[in-house]
């Protein structure tokens, strides 16, 4: 579904400030895989998503989506295959427009012609879909999205992403800005939608427990490279201490004050 070949990305290349964010990156994600990605700040996780979605062009290497070389395609062209959700709940919706207008814009990918498709049938369809969120949004379709809470907006963004029928979902810490209760709700919705729509998914998270609990494959990134890649049986039996051990084995350095530990580490004592 996604194939990255020798991908590299350097910011300010050729200057003294040159910073290589992604180096020598090779990754193949098969259709239907649910990949969780962890790594400390600056590991290159979001840059990786930017390279896949085309909001950033690689310095070298190729990007394949659905057996098609899309390296030269601009972001809006690749968007046909991709559904992307950001950490910021405001990023996925137009806040000064109504719920139904937002859903109308996102329910179909591609160019929009000047025809009116938002009719009674469409509204009924949106209402049916909103009921699944169990947030009471089906009664607020004429309200501006800005009146929703962060959790509601992110759940709505998730729903709109799924309804636009992408082949691949890119989730960039999409629950990180929410309170624990809403984060749990959105995470439940995420897994349900991924299962129901058989989405190939890449999910960045800062939470080691999430990375282990969800998905069929786990990648750990560090300094622009994949350092751990586990799936199948091995992934099923993975624990946070085991993961940390693997990391320490590879890097042979004290794990000490790494920020990543802050979220995963709290639960270390079982």
């Amino acid at each position: 579904m996604i194939r990255l070949e020798n991908l590299a990305c350097t910011f300010d290349a050729g200057t003294p400030n040159a910073k290589t964010v992604i180096k020598n990156f090779n990754l193949t994600v098969a259709a239907g895989e649910f990949v969780t990605i962890i790594g400390s700040n600056g590991a290159g996780k979001t840059t990786l998503f930017n390279l896949i979605s085309g909001s950033l062009m690689p310095t070298s290497g190729r990007v394949w989506i659905k057996d098609q070389d899309v390296t030269a395609h601009p972001e809006y062209k690749r968007a046909r295959y991709l559904g992307r959700i950001f950490q910021d709940p405001l990023a996925g919706t137009a806040s000064n427009m109504t719920l139904e207008d937002n859903m109308m814009i996102t329910c179909k990918k591609g160019f929009k012609w000047p025809v009116i498709s938002l009719n009674r049938k469409m509204r009924a369809y949106f209402r049916d879909q909103l009921i699944h969120l169990k947030m009471g949004l089906e009664g607020r379709m004429k309200e501006n999205v800005s009146s929703l809470s962060g959790g509601q907006r992110q759940a709505l963004t998730l729903l709109m992403m799924v309804l636009s029928r992408p082949a691949i979902a890119l989730l960039d810490e999409h629950t990180a800005a929410l309170d624990p209760r809403n984060a749990a709700v959105v995470m439940d919705l995420t897994t349900r939608f991924i299962r129901e729509h058989r989405l190939t998914t890449l999910m960045i998270t800062h939470n080691m427990n999430h990375a282990i609990a969800y998905g069929s494959r786990l990648l750990m990134m560090d300094a622009g490279e994949i350092i751990i890649d586990v799936s199948g049986e091995e992934k099923a039996h993975l624990t946070v201490p085991r993961l940390l051990e693997m990391f320490a084995d590879i890097r042979r350095e004290a794990f000490g004050n790494d920020e990543m530990l802050l979220t995963g580490g709290r639960n270390l004592g079982h």
Binding site: M97, D101, G110, V115
Partner: peptide
């Protein structure tokens, strides 16, 4: 009120959302 008109509304508000939708801003 048309599909195109709605996307115009979103464009001034959230250009990223329009691009993610597969429309060229």
């Amino acid at each position: 009120h048309t599909d195109m008109g709605l996307v115009f509304g979103a464009l001034g508000n959230n250009e990223q959302m329009v691009r993610v939708q597969g429309v060229n801003p």
